[in-house]
Structure formats: C-alpha cells, structure tokens
C-alpha cells in the first residue's frame, strides 16, 4: 500500500481517492500466508459487517493510512461490481466512466500504472529512492503535484 499512499500524497490536490476494504485475502481460517504471521497480521475471515469494520479500523490505525476509506458490505456488492478481489485499482473520470482499469492482484496489481495515468494528466512527480520510502524531488511539467510533503512519512505495508 506504500505506493498508493505516495500516489495519494502526490496527486490528492488533483484527484479524489477512495480505498474500499473487501473480503480478506489470507485470513487465518482460509489461506493464511507465512508472511501474515511474520507481520502479525492475523485475522479470521469476517462473518459480520462489524468484524469487517473492526479490521478496517485496525488497518487505518496501525499504518496511519491517510486515504479516504470505506468498507464493502457483507453482500460484497462493490467487490462483485468491480471484480476487485484481492486487490485492484480503477480510475473513474469526471463523467463517471472507467478511465483506467488496473489488473487483478497480486500479480497484475500495478499502482505505477495509475500513477502514469495521473502523471499524463497532471504532470509527473519525481522521487529520490530512499529505501522503501520515497520523497518528492521535483515537479515536472503540467500542473504538478504538491512539492511540500518531503517530510511526510509514508506507511509501508
């Protein structure tokens, strides 16, 4: 999610963002991964909306996740409408049409493609590589992103 947070920081002045929490991908009672145990991210698949909301709030608090956030309800309506599971990115333009359709995660989940779409429209934001955290260096052509967030820390998941 670190890449998405960086994109949000770079383009939140130009685009709206919404993260939608959908059913868990690797819960303890289904296909749990070793990395989940290592990272202490161990949750059973929520059976109620309250459980989903609880996990979503845990995520927000743990990573200080800054993007606007919502939860898919137990009918999985958003997930079904967007074929979203386990992770996926779309960009919807002002006319309400799909402007970018990301690939299905995890193998085709590529936030950099969404960044490219935003960069083509609003200008690229370049970053210096600094471990897993990135810091804005300069704003190139177009309207550009906000260049005042160099001191902001970006959660990495």
């Amino acid at each position: 999610m670190g890449d998405v947070v960086q994109i949000y920081e770079d383009y939140k002045e130009h685009a709206d963002f919404l993260t939608v929490y959908v059913r868990e991908a690797h819960p303890t009672d289904e296909w749990q991964m070793k990395s989940n145990v290592k990272d202490d991210v161990c949750y059973a698949q929520p059976k109620t909306l309250e459980q989903r909301v609880l996990i979503a709030n845990d995520f927000i608090k743990r990573f200080k996740f800054p993007l606007p956030f919502g939860v898919d309800d137990m009918s999985d309506a958003a997930n079904d409408a967007y074929a979203a599971w386990p992770e996926r990115i779309y960009i919807i333009d002002e006319s309400g049409r799909i402007a970018y359709r990301g690939g299905m995660g995890p193998f085709n989940y590529k936030p950099e493609e969404a960044r490219e779409w935003l960069a083509a429209r609003y200008g690229a934001v370049k970053h210096k590589a600094a471990g897993r955290r990135n810091y804005p260096e300069a704003v190139s052509n177009g309207e550009g992103g906000n260049g005042d967030n160099a001191s902001k820390q970006v959660p990495t998941v």
């Binding site: 999610m1 998405v4 994109i7 949000y8 383009y11 130009h14 685009a15 709206d16 963002f17 919404l18 993260t19 939608v20 929490y21 959908v22 059913r23 868990e24 991908a25 690797h26 819960p27 749990q32 991964m33 989940n36 991210v41 161990c42 949750y43 996990i55 979503a56 845990d58 995520f59 993007l67 958003a78 997930n79 967007y82 979203a84 599971w85 386990p86 992770e87 996926r88 990115i89 779309y90 960009i91 919807i92 333009d93 002002e94 309400g96 402007a99 995660g105 969404a114 935003l118 429209r121």
Partner: peptide, 15 residues
C-alpha cells in the same frame, strides 16, 4: 464521489 475530479478507487484488504 465521481463528479468534479477523477476518483482513484483502490480495493484491497489487510492480509
């Protein structure tokens, strides 16, 4: 949320 500006819609979960 899709009227005035593009909406970047990110789907995912915790695990």
């Amino acid at each position: 949320r899709t009227h005035e500006r593009p909406l970047v819609l990110v789907f995912g979960s915790f695990t």
